[in-house]
């Protein structure tokens, strides 16, 4: 088993990160001693069978969960040293999430959904509405801003979710199986969007089961049973 070398200029760094869930008598080792780093601007696909720990790693990087042991650094800051408000602000300013189930507010319009992270922002001083409109246009939904999620197709909903992730100008986009609920053609459109973001310098990490989807990334990391099984670089 070989692990990726840890570069010091990485935007994300995991040092011997383990996550163990205790289910009654049983311990589930979701991640075992994982050390991995992600360079700024790089697009990485995380692959592996179901239950191998991919989502667990994403949640740890996204500061939604805490590791059982080990340290995580985002832009050089140790997450263990941040308080709950600082973690919230980090999620707001630095990270954008894209989920498999879109997770849009059903009662709100596309525009309101995209504005949501901006409304929680403590440092943004630009016009929230203008920025949200800009992001929706960027994902090709300039003409659907007043629609509610129910009135949009799955692919359109995921594009709203991407616009929402983008709105706060994050450095990192974490996409956990973003095409998992979509058909092949729509998947391609969503992937084109994410690749585009990667080309603009945003660090994109995406979890996927599909080799075609993973092929968009410059780097593939394969997980099995909570450890990194192998790593592939598809750099030209």
């Amino acid at each position: 088993m070989k692990q990726a070398p840890i570069s010091s200029d990485a935007i994300i760094r995991c040092d011997s990160v383990s996550k163990t869930y205790i289910m009654g008598e049983q311990k589930v080792h979701a991640l075992r001693d994982v050390s991995v780093a992600f360079a700024a601007g790089e697009m990485t696909a995380i692959m592996g069978p179901s239950g191998s720990g991919k989502s667990t790693l994403m949640n740890l990087i996204g500061a939604l969960d805490v590791p059982t042991s080990g340290d995580l650094y985002i832009q050089g800051r140790n997450l263990a040293k941040l308080d709950v408000d600082e973690l919230a602000d980090l999620r707001n300013e630095t990270i954008g999430f894209v989920f498999q189930q879109f997770n849009l507010l059903g009662r709100a319009t596309a525009l309101t959904n995209v504005k949501l992270p901006l409304r929680y922002s403590r440092k943004l001083d630009e016009d929230i509405d203008a920025r949200a409109v800009e992001c929706l246009q960027l994902v090709g939904l300039g003409d659907r801003m007043g629609h509610r999620p129910m009135q949009l197709s799955g692919g359109q909903q995921q594009r709203v979710a991407i616009a929402r992730a983008l709105a706060g100008r994050p450095s990192i986009i974490l996409a956990d199986e973003p095409t998992g609920a979509l058909d092949t053609q729509t998947s391609g459109e969503i992937m084109d969007l994410l690749v585009n973001l990667g080309q603009q310098g945003i660090t994109v990490i995406l979890v996927t089961h599909e080799a075609e989807v993973a092929a968009y990334a410059q780097r593939q990391i394969h997980f099995r049973d909570g450890v990194i099984e192998r790593e592939i670089r598809t750099e030209p």
Partner: peptide, 12 residues
């Protein structure tokens, strides 16, 4: 959970 994921603080 979603609001927290996109940066709402506890106080929000």
């Amino acid at each position: 959970g979603l609001r927290m994921a996109i940066g709402a603080r506890k106080s929000d």
